[in-house]
Amino acid sequence: MKTTVLQKNIFWIILFAALLLLSAAALLALKLFPPRGTVAKLYQSGSLIRSIDLSHVEEPYEFTVTSPLGENTVRVEPGRIRVVSADCPDGVCVNMGWLSFAPIVCLPHEFMILTDRSPGTAADAGMPDGTAG
């Protein structure tokens, strides 16, 4: 192998710089053109449990999703939705704020909020959904 240590390091530096730029670009693209519709879909352990059309929401309201794994309290306002509190150990779902281009996820509780234009889920592929409007 005739490449020097410096050359090898430069290879890695360029590779990581490219990856960083790519990721930043992807992030920017997602922020500018979010794949987001107006319907929020709530999933518990892989099944759709609730579907909310955010554009038809007049008054803010909250409700709690309970499962054997724990609780997540969701707040719905005109046009937006988020998790306001949860009894999971990390609280990441709360810190995620309002739903935007990426799903709100509570991993310990297998609870997730997606938009209707997110990349597909198994639940959508023909499984019976318990839509409760």
Binding site: A102, P103, M112, L114, S118, G120, T121
Partner: peptide
């Protein structure tokens, strides 16, 4: 676990 590709976002 969540059965979705959306997490790759």
């Amino acid at each position: 676990v969540l059965r979705t590709g959306a997490v790759f976002l």
